[in-house]
Design a protein around this nucleic acid. Structure first.
Lengths: 228, 228
DNA sequence: CAACAGTGTTGTCAATGACTACATGATTCC
DNA sequence: GGAATCATGTAGTCATTGACAACACTGTTG
């Protein structure tokens, strides 16, 4: 709403880097008031340009929102990658760290996540590409687990998407106030535990794809399923 | 957008049941064009009342959207309950049926789901209550599984929320076009399988009796050491 | 029958997204 | 070096919208 003055410095006719300035202002605005409240004219005021200037960089309100969503996926990907390099070697710990990084990013940027989860940017291939880039480290993590025979063999994509979906869903419960924020860590923690158990390979039971997994030692008769 | 004429019949000064008429028109509109496109004035036109009439029933645009979200949760709850009474086989099949019902509802009503997952209705306790009512059958299902010693003991709420979150997240991947719709069943299926394994308690290991004999080959795994 | 409350109507306002025509400045090419 | 050209910003305009206020119609209740 209120035209947040940024640089009251006088500006020449051309702004110089209006596009990024708009995106930055937009990110602040979305963060503060949600995507639905975002007004192009307000952004223009905030940056100090005329109301029609944004149109040179975003043909459409939606186009700007798409760009923001894209940026959101890039940020998320960064966060996940950082969490993965920081984490130690233990696969379970790495998975936990990844999930936690995602969960906290989502809860700290609810409006951005909502934008990323919006159905509106279906026509924007750039957003899809950004999303895939954010998923990549997750898939890579799954491959790690499979290489260590901690996860069942099969498409790493499949497992990765399920993990992503689960954490995303949990944060959504928190962000919509259906679950108190205090339960976030607890929920993601048990979700990850269940994921590790449910997608366990090697000692795991009932791995459907065990027939295909040549490198896999034959699964013992039953249980083992090391509990805890 | 286009003022969809409903009943061209002439109407008396008072509509009779404007509130529900508006909600019905709103549901159609949201389903067709998304919540962001919904216009109160357009609804008024569609129903054949003046542009200010809706205000008597919804103080606010958001209030109408909240009512729609509430209705969405009621519908979802119905669907889940129906799926549960229809499938009274073993626990795994019931879980699979529940997940499938949710997943298909979500994918068939993307805009409605987006509304239900919106952060904007945080101030509306009615929406929260409706959501809880929709969760209830899921929690009840979890209690079943725990009673049969197929799921680990603990708060049924916890497991139920995780299951809900997972399916919700998967449908979101489909609804945002990040995953082709054709993979919906496959993804929910393996997600449920993993859930059952990951949250397994007592004896039940790898009871993956597939109800929808879809893409998944039946897994022999371990003998289902029966409950009770 | 008269007050009254519920509901619908008309009128109005500021804000917005989209569009057009025009201005200014930077880049390129002769 | 200067002109053509293109990118970028500006001013003006329009239809639409949500919100609000003042007023009209109608059934109910005392």
């Amino acid at each position: 709403m209120s035209a947040m003055n940024d640089q009251p410095e006088q500006r020449r006719y051309h702004h110089g880097d209006l596009r990024t300035a708009l995106l930055e202002a937009a990110e602040r605005s979305v963060r503060a008031h949600g995507a639905a409240q975002l007004s192009l004219r307000d952004l223009a005021r905030a940056v100090g340009v005329s109301h029609a200037a944004p149109r040179r960089h975003f043909a459409d309100r939606q186009e700007l929102l798409d760009a923001l969503a894209e940026e959101g996926f890039a940020l998320l990907g960064e966060n996940i990658r950082r969490a993965l390099v920081d984490a130690d070697e233990d696969f379970a710990a790495r998975t936990r760290g990844t999930a936690s990084a995602f969960a906290h990013f989502a809860v700290e940027n609810p409006a951005l996540l909502e934008l990323m989860n919006s159905t509106k940017h279906q026509g924007a291939p750039s957003v899809a590409r950004a999303a895939e880039a954010a998923f990549e480290p997750i898939f890579e993590l799954i491959r790690e687990g499979q290489a260590q025979d901690i996860l069942e063999a099969g498409e790493p994509e499949e497992l990765g998407l399920i993990l992503y979906a689960t954490i995303n869903g949990i944060t959504m419960l928190v962000n919509t106030n259906m679950v108190p924020a205090g339960r976030l860590d607890e929920l993601t923690d048990t979700a990850v535990s269940q994921f590790l158990r449910g997608a366990a390979g090697g000692a795991g039971v009932g791995t459907i794809s065990s027939a295909r997994a040549g490198s896999r030692p034959p699964t013992p008769g039953c249980p083992v399923r090391a509990r805890g």
